[in-house]
Nucleic acid binder design. Structure first.
Length: 574
RNA sequence: GCGCCCUUAGCUCAGUUGGAUAGAGCAUCGGUUUUCUAAACCGAGGGUCGUAGGUUCGAAUCCUUCAGGGCGCGCCA
């Protein structure tokens, strides 16, 4: 149920019926007409811009038109007790008690799904996909949470969502990773000092992995890297992925599908994709120009397979093969994405870190080519996370193993705060993550603020000895909302719209912002009781008005739905 | 040189399918508690929406110019 949609339909239908009376010709252009909440200073429930939009197209003075529409609405729709024309021609509308109650009842009857935007599509969201050569760092957490909440949001609306992780368990980096583990094992077993070199992984977790592999392979000598390679690769990857999965789990995230790059190679998916693209002339042998950025010493102008990604909006065509004829990382990814296309998803979403911005156009181009534009890949880039502690920036780099890992973060900050704070910003701006602030228990910390509002409601229900799910019967004869309750109700009406834009634009950050505003209204109302006894909810252990109870249940309902989507818990008591 | 993102109050940011007097939080200053949880509330000051143009009844929002900041620009992954 979305009250704005409901009334836009009623009002536009009414206008259509009375087209001649209103002297309107261009009625095929209803685009742009909306019903929304008026600015706070107007004491109305709804606002409609129909006369502004239609007046413009039909060259009619919007205020005159507004007046005619106003009379029509008053005559034909019995839902409003007051309509005013404001500003350049906005219609501000106030609902009758009866229609307010109808709308409140509708929400109360469908508490679990209030705000749901019905939809039934098949989505694949690829996110995290951190290299399996080491543990997750803080930057990964942002993308991880973003992807997870996006999935929750889309599922809430009724879509099917596969949460996927692409494991880059192939190529040189894995060789170097296994080599690092090998050298650490030699260090432990034979006292050979580990000397860190370029391309090796020095981090301490490598030692842990080495120990585990020694334990589970008591008879293995580890005296020849090449001979032990397969074993080392397999076991190191397993331990490393276990680390990552355990971090993800602590953040409340579980993927549905892990897709291995090695398997993709073994199943010849790249060849299949390349052959398909060749058939359509999207892949050809050719030469590329040297890159414009930093000089690359190993660059060679030789003939190789090239994907013509410029045909799909990329800045330059892309190599599918390296100097030695083997596939590039991109070629493998093309193979992977062909598999996704073949799995018949309607929408593909890739959540990437800021350092992969330059990759977006080519992989989007590849999906267009592979699906003949049938499937749209949407790449969402999460900008950097900047860590602060004691007002000093925390450095983060994956270089020497001195990055801030997800573990480090989880040791100090609980999952709820991490999730909420990482989402409390649009994904395409940098995010300052302040350790101190996130641990604070005050209004400074939005997580606590929202949770606290719910805890207050819970305690209220405990005092009343009532359950949040109890049925409430409202009576239009005595129905009366005070100004605090009206403000809250109007905010509650906006919830479906928040869900709609958050999910259609993939912008989950709108949810924490909204919840914070709703919590503010509730805290404010609550405090009114401290100033003036008449605003207290309870008298002699009983609720004073059923309307108040209904409003409070609505607040609790929306906060529950919202926090549920965010994957943040709601304690009863704080 | 090129691409993507950003530029809104002292600070951190919401707000873009064009709409009404541009909003929050922090910080600053001043108030509120014998309580349904003060982990809260109320009030005040604070703005040329980076610059310069354009589109129109109307622009933070759309187009163009320029400037500043971030990320990236390999046949690495």
């Amino acid at each position: 149920m979305n009250i704005f949609e409901e009334y836009i339909n009623k009002i536009t239908a009414l206008i259509l019926e009375n087209q001649k009376l209103l002297k309107l010709d261009n009625l095929n252009k209803f685009k742009g007409i909306v019903v929304e909440s008026p600015p706070a200073e107007f004491d109305f429930d709804l606002s409609c811009n129909a006369s502004l939009v239609l007046g413009k197209i039909n060259k009619i003075n919007p205020k005159e038109l507004a007046n005619k529409i106003k009379n029509l609405i008053l005559k034909d729709l019995k839902d409003f007790k007051k309509i005013e024309i404001a500003g350049p021609g906005f219609l501000n509308l106030k609902l009758t008690n009866k229609s307010l109650i109808i709308n409140i009842d509708k929400i109360l009857e469908n508490r679990k799904t209030y705000g749901k935007k019905n939809s039934n599509n098949n989505y694949n969201i690829e996110f995290v996909s951190a290299n399996p050569t080491g543990p997750m760092h803080v930057g990964h957490c942002r993308g991880a949470i973003y992807g997870d909440v996006l999935a929750n949001l889309l599922k809430f609306n009724g879509n099917k969502v596969t949460k996927e992780y692409y494991i880059n368990d192939y190529g040189n980096q894995i060789k170097n990773f296994a080599k690092s583990v090998y050298l650490r094992i030699r260090e432990i077993k034979y006292n050979e000092k580990f000397i860190s070199k370029k391309d090796l992984y020095p981090g301490e977790y490598i030692i842990e992995i080495g120990k585990k592999i020694i334990d589970s392979n008591k008879n293995e000598k580890f005296d020849n890297f090449d001979e032990s390679f397969n074993l080392l690769k397999k076991e190191s990857l397993k331990h490393s992925m276990d680390l990552i999965k355990s971090d993800l789990k602590k953040l409340g995230i579980e993927h549905d599908n892990f897709f291995s790059e090695t398997e993709l190679i073994e199943n010849k998916l790249v060849e299949k994709a390349v052959n398909y693209l060749k058939k359509n002339n999207y892949v050809q042998e050719g030469y590329l120009e040297p890159p414009k950025g930093d000089r690359d010493e190993t660059w060679k102008k030789t003939k190789r397979l090239i994907f013509k990604s410029t045909l799909f909006g990329d800045d330059t065509d892309r190599a599918m093969q390296k100097n030695d004829g083997s596939w590039t990382y991109f070629a493998n990814d093309v193979g992977y994405h062909m598999d996704k296309v073949n799995r018949n998803y309607k929408y593909l979403i890739n959540v990437l870190g800021a350092d992969h911005t330059g990759y977006v156009k080519r992989i989007t181009a590849a999906v267009s080519a592979l699906s003949e534009n049938r499937v749209k890949l949407n790449c969402k880039v999460c900008q950097l996370v900047k860590l602060y502690k004691d007002a000093k920036p925390f450095k983060m780099s994956k270089r020497a193993g001195d990055f801030i890992s997800a573990q480090d973060l989880l040791n100090e900050v609980n999952k709820d705060s991490i999730r909420f704070m990482m989402l409390n910003r649009s994904n395409d701006v940098e995010l300052d993550f302040d350790f101190d602030k996130v641990l604070e228990k005050s209004k400074d910390n939005p997580v606590f603020y929202v949770q606290y509002s719910f805890a207050r409601i819970s305690s209220l229900f405990k005092t009343l000895n009532k359950d949040l799910n109890d049925k409430i019967n409202l009576d239009s004869k005595v129905f009366l909302l005070n100004e605090n309750e009206i403000k809250i109700l109007r905010k509650i009406f906006e919830w479906p719209k928040i869900i709609e834009t958050a999910s259609s634009k993939y912008e989950p950050h709108k949810i924490p912002y909204y919840l914070y505003e709703l919590a503010t209204l509730f805290h404010s109302y609550w405090s009114k009781g401290n100033e003036d006894k008449k605003f207290k909810f309870i008298e002699n252990g009983k609720i004073k008005k059923k309307e108040t109870l209904a409003i409070i249940v609505l607040v609790a309902t929306v906060i529950q739905r919202g926090m549920n989507i965010l994957g943040v818990s709601l304690p009863d008591k704080m």
